[in-house]
Simulated scan of single mutants.
Amino acid sequence: MRKKVADAGLRSAGVLIAASGVAHFVVPSVFVFISRWLFPKDTKTMVQINGAAETAIGVAIVNRRTRVWGILGLLGYAAYLGDRVVRDVIRRIGVSRR
């Protein structure tokens, strides 16, 4: 029973992540608006790359055979975006690197 619930939860999460990725292509203006401060150079291209990554990660999580790779991809993607946020905050508050 727990296994079925966990599987359903992971499938649902994968579908939501993939849908978010597809949304990057359907309504890119929303994601350009959100992403412009993280990706000030070539924001539209970065929105497309992030949309493709989220779509692939979501699809991988939905499928049991590729789920581990999808979760690893999600962890890497989250680390990448987290790094971008931290770098932007550091840039905004003017912390110098020595």
Rank of each mutant, 00 (worst) to 15 (best):
I34P: 01
A79N: 05
A60V: 02
A13Q: 11
S35H: 07
S35L: 07
G82Q: 03
L16V: 13
R84A: 13
L38P: 02
G9Y: 13
K41Y: 05
I17G: 12
G58C: 05
A13L: 15
I34Y: 07
Y77R: 03
G51W: 03
S29R: 15
G82I: 00
H24L: 10
S29W: 13
D83H: 08
I17H: 09
L10V: 03
V68D: 11
T55C: 08
V32D: 11
G58F: 06
S29G: 11
A60W: 02
I17V: 15
G14T: 12
V26H: 08
E54N: 08
I34F: 11
A53N: 05
I71Q: 12
S35V: 01
R67K: 14
T66E: 05
I17K: 13
Y77A: 05
G51A: 06
Y77T: 02
I61C: 03
R64C: 02
L72D: 04
L10A: 09
A78Y: 02
R67N: 07
G21A: 11
V26A: 15
P28M: 11
A56S: 13
V30W: 14
S12N: 15
W69S: 09
T55R: 08
F39T: 07
R67T: 00
A56H: 05
T55Q: 03
L16T: 14
